[in-house]
């Protein structure tokens, strides 16, 4: 890692967007590098299609590029970017419904271009061997949109409740009750499967 990279990783998102607003395109590139994969994971889990997910992430960054001056330092940058990505993903989902395309959760990752990060096998991943990822993805996709988003933000992206509340424009209490209901729904879907696998 170069000295510049070490230094750039210490710069806050808010500082980067400020620099970008001042015309520094390198700062924008750093933002892209910082967020592209996590946004891709979020939109992919939400949509279940890698191509659509990547399009949404591209469009998210284009919106940021286009509307850079709309961002005000009062809000956290991550909240802003997740709000944009979430809204675009929702729009994409509605477009798809209009097109009446049905996506069956096909997590074979036939598109080899989407690389899976090599997560080392360890005790933390012990569950995954017993619970196939494709079943989880299918169960997530079957959740109503409002539950899907909240479970992805809280349990997959592991964002704090306060931030999720801002992203979804919901009171904190609503986020908490919604995440509980989402988890129970997911558990109802996956419980039987887990029992059968035992």
């Amino acid at each position: 890692m170069t000295g510049q990279e070490t230094k750039s990783s210490q710069i806050s998102d808010e500082e980067l967007i400020k620099r970008f607003q001042d015309g520094d395109l390198y700062a924008f590139d750093l933002i892209v590098s910082r967020y592209k994969d996590q946004l891709f994971n979020f939109t992919y889990r939400f949509l279940g299609s890698a191509q659509e997910a990547e399009d949404v992430v591209q469009e998210t960054f284009l919106r940021i590029f286009r509307n850079r001056f709309a961002y005000r330092q009062i809000a956290k940058f991550s909240t802003w970017i997740y709000t944009i990505a979430g809204n675009l993903a929702k729009t994409e989902l509605r477009k798809r419904k209009r097109r009446k395309i049905v996506y069956i959760s096909d997590l074979g990752f036939d598109d080899k271009e989407y690389e899976i990060e090599d997560v080392k096998a360890n005790t933390e991943r012990e569950v995954e061997s017993s619970l196939a990822e494709k079943h989880i993805q299918k169960a997530i996709e079957e959740l109503p949109e409002r539950f899907r988003k909240v479970i992805l933000l809280v349990d997959v992206q592991e964002l704090p409740y306060e931030e999720v509340s801002k992203i979804l424009h919901l009171p904190l209490g609503t986020v908490k009750s919604r995440i509980n209901r989402a988890r129970l729904k997911l558990q109802a879907k996956l419980g039987d499967l887990m029992d059968r696998q035992k």
Partner: peptide
């Protein structure tokens, strides 16, 4: 136990990366 398993599974979902030409396209 189920709930704990699901939570763990959600956290450990494989982390995907965008395609290699993502930056170029953008």
């Amino acid at each position: 136990a189920q709930a704990r398993q699901i939570r763990q599974a959600l956290r450990n979902l494989p982390k995907l990366k965008t395609s290699p030409h993502f930056h170029l396209l953008l």
